[in-house]
Design a protein around this nucleic acid. Sequence first.
DNA 1: TTGTAAGCGTTATCAA
DNA 2: TTGATAACGCTTACAA
Lengths: 335, 335
Amino acid sequence: MKPVTLREIAERLNVSTSTVSRALHDHPRISSATKRAVRALAQELNFQPNPLAMNLRMQRTKTIGIIVPKISYPFYASAITGIESVAIQEGYNIVICQSNESYEQEVANVRSLLLSRVDGIVVSLAGETEQYDHFQEVVNRGVPLVFFNRTCPELAVSQVVIDNFAAATQAVTSLIQHGCSRIGLLAGPSKIDISNERLRGYRQALAQYQLPFDSDLVAHCDYSEASGFAQTVRLIQSPDPPDGIFAVSDRLAIAAVKAIKEYNLRIPEDIALVGFNNDPVTSVVSPPLTTIDQNPEQMGETAAQLLFRQFQEPDASAEKIVLKTRLLERNSVKK
Amino acid sequence: MKPVTLREIAERLNVSTSTVSRALHDHPRISSATKRAVRALAQELNFQPNPLAMNLRMQRTKTIGIIVPKISYPFYASAITGIESVAIQEGYNIVICQSNESYEQEVANVRSLLLSRVDGIVVSLAGETEQYDHFQEVVNRGVPLVFFNRTCPELAVSQVVIDNFAAATQAVTSLIQHGCSRIGLLAGPSKIDISNERLRGYRQALAQYQLPFDSDLVAHCDYSEASGFAQTVRLIQSPDPPDGIFAVSDRLAIAAVKAIKEYNLRIPEDIALVGFNNDPVTSVVSPPLTTIDQNPEQMGETAAQLLFRQFQEPDASAEKIVLKTRLLERNSVKK
DNA sequence: TTGTAAGCGTTATCAA
DNA sequence: TTGATAACGCTTACAA
């Protein structure tokens, strides 16, 4: 019942363990006769090299660590699937950590991954995170690192993102073109890079159509539904409420839907709404939400590819890949 | 920049590595003086024992493997969170695998987890799985195993489930009490244990109210939205269509919603609908779905606890824990 | 072409 | 109370 080891094979064949190891690795200076013999027996005994021993010996684990805010966010679940698919293809395992949007948990995740000697790390930042020493530490240790989606502007590290500025501009433009003139923004945490990019896009669209920017209409939320709901209520109850809202995530948009309905307002007639992510719920909610589709699986794949590129050329400079998005127009803006 | 090892501490203190190791483990026969000295230096150098070396030496990894059909299913995402929380508490790491409902991938997952020597495995079966040799192998190797939710009836292994029979009875009863008399069932794969339990519950409710059982009304689906949609269409188009549908998962229920709406029928007036899982979308879709709430996080926690119990008493007999559920009545059945 | 031996960083056994 | 030493299972100089 015990797993077979190199030694057993060696003893049975009256050769040394090194010969067995080399035969299995197709070392050029091993006779094809012994190679055949070794392989045959290895096959027969169903030999699997013990990864624990290999890890210790090789000082690498063939494992990549992933840190995401929450695996239950459909965006990240899909991104993970993307990362996983290329990892498997390359013979790597993955280990998934959730930061739960918490800075402290993210730090703990990094520590744990470093400790377990993963060969590389793929991260999307927690909403709370405002300092990056823990990632600097990753870089210092020479462990390849790639950010995706929520990235860190201060670190010269490879990253894959979408053009958040352009996507947000497009989203808000859609609201404007459908007749909205006073548009609220359910923004993300102000320390998160993509939040600011989307805010810039929002302002850009307003400027393009000569609409005034009113900071009262910008509501910063963390990524929780509760904050989305509360901020929407605040916008609705304000003296001069918006006739359209752009939410920087579909979760916030859904929270907005609930708030708007609670106040017996109609979507899109009273308030039009645009979300971000093409979360599955957006096609189910009534009315279906206009949103930005951004192919998270592809983003995950790309991030993983970037990581593997770093494995091959550790000294290559940081790359930034920007993926395409598209606006999915649905009834939440059609007036 | 290199991680500190036992040896370094030993050399600096002019003691042996064994002494250092023992001091750090609070071994009773080490003088408190050296303990203090060792610990102080360990702290100062920020010594972290290399888990790779420990793993190899101890033949255990302080890691538990999790296999679920898909992490993007909200039910499993929550269950994982539950497992994770007790694992962390016990100082264990987790590694998450997705079977993607595929038997082959599940087998590969098991193989990979066994190879990497996880200390125990928590599983919810893939929809496709109809044979269990790979789990028998886990048991044979003496690796603790716990099933949750979708369990395996043939193996004497600890498991945590809900009372699927009772929950399904309750769900269908709700439809009947709101006036449905011809109730369709979007059932799960017939090889999955909980599918059959829910089917039994369905029949029980019918029997209780003297409604006839009609096998034409039972539509077996895999867990995909596509099959839920197709089967709903089949039911709608049948010569004698149902006035209510019980879907054994919310994903299938959502698919049913889409199909029903596509045929311009009203929910619940033309067809009432009950789902299963209390997926977040059920509160967002219009009308909100009646569903069975089953606290997946608690289920995950319980499964993990069962596993840790096995770590402590490897020879204890298999336990089966049945958790409570509750019916969440919403507008998809109110006529 | 193959074998010997060292080493990865721990823990555990035995002896002192 | 502590130290040598072996061992976990593998890879890889270096020797033969």
